[in-house]
Nucleic acid binder design. Structure first.
Lengths: 182, 182
DNA sequence: GCTCACATGTAATAAGTTACATGATTTC
DNA sequence: GAAATCATGTAACTTATTACATGTGAGC
């Protein structure tokens, strides 16, 4: 249901094609807490059209691929508000990195160091991008969520920087491959 | 593959039944960044037994349901280290709450207020639980990941407390149900 | 007597990912 | 000439969720 909710969200702010919806999911402030690919968006739009939540018109420009421009209907708006009003499920956080950290002794300090570097770089890039988005952002609700993201990611980045050596030390007391745990 | 990796992680620190593995996924510090249910654990264990990554023995106690106690094999250990050594995918964060925040004007200030309360309470409970876990925790790697969690969740909680009124104000400029967006 | 914790598993279903298939235009 | 962007979609596959099915013992 999550792709559907996301499509309705986008369309509630204006018409869009499947392609554009997917771009919104990949770039911009949505990308930080939402995911949607072609394989989920196109079927979802088709389904919603059947259910009367959206309509579409074709736009044919000579020399360009024709686009299906989707619009939300009143039923679609109602369904969206309905979904928003349902008590939302909790946020989902899944971290292969933290599992790696927990078992860092099995892979050794060097590998962990590299992964920490990668993570720090990734966090800095992301925070930088969000700060830039924030500057050009005019919608106060978007600004609020962006600041939320910047705040939490900065806390994460800061923790990584302050405590990386501790984890590297833990990882250095390496467990041999062939050795039994405990 | 994530359930498999998680099962191998648990079994790499000692034998366990499917039931126990699932309990670990629900309670304790794993639960903050991992998810696994019966429906994914039991099939995963069966598959891994076929692949020679785990073995099991039956424990029959009179008057108790018999348990299948799984052990990891050397091949299982190798597979686990292998999976850990592969560059991990990025953390996954999905937030129905932030989507709600973005479109808070559609549901109004009262609903948002309630949801913020719920979220703050939830965060406080979680942070409290993690602090308690930290106190009784002896493994340094577990302590590191717990502190990571406490740090980021505290940043989140703090942001919510400091900026809730801003969001409530945004949400109060309510868009009517029947009104077109933009 | 009821509910909770222990304990195993299956089956139907939902949902999404990845790769495939196609093709024009624009930019390097 | 190659690669990226625009643009639509399908199909095979993987993965996990939810509910079902079954049963015991302990505590209230």
């Amino acid at each position: 249901m999550s792709t559907r909710k996301f499509c309705l969200a986008i369309l509630s702010s204006g018409d869009a094609t499947g392609y554009e919806i997917r771009k919104t999911a990949q770039e911009g402030h949505f990308s930080h807490f939402i995911e949607a690919s072609y394989g989920s968006i196109y079927p979802s739009l088709a389904k919603m059209e059947q259910d009367g939540l959206v309509t579409w018109r074709e736009e044919v420009s000579p020399g360009k691929p024709s686009r299906k421009i989707y619009s939300i209907t009143q039923a679609g708006r109602d369904a969206f508000v309905q979904e928003l009003s349902e008590t939302p499920v909790e946020d989902l956080f899944r971290s292969p990195f933290l599992l790696l950290a927990l078992y860092s002794r099995w892979v050794g300090g060097e590998f962990i160091s590299k992964e920490i570097d990668r993570r720090i770089e990734h966090l800095e890039l992301k925070i930088g991008g969000m700060n830039h988005e924030l500057e050009i952002c005019e919608d106060p609700a978007s600004a609020w969520t962006l600041e939320y993201g910047i705040t939490t990611l900065s806390a994460s980045l800061n923790y990584m920087k302050m405590n990386r050596s501790k984890l590297e030390r833990i990882a250095s007391e390496r467990v041999s491959h062939a050795q039994a745990a405990e």
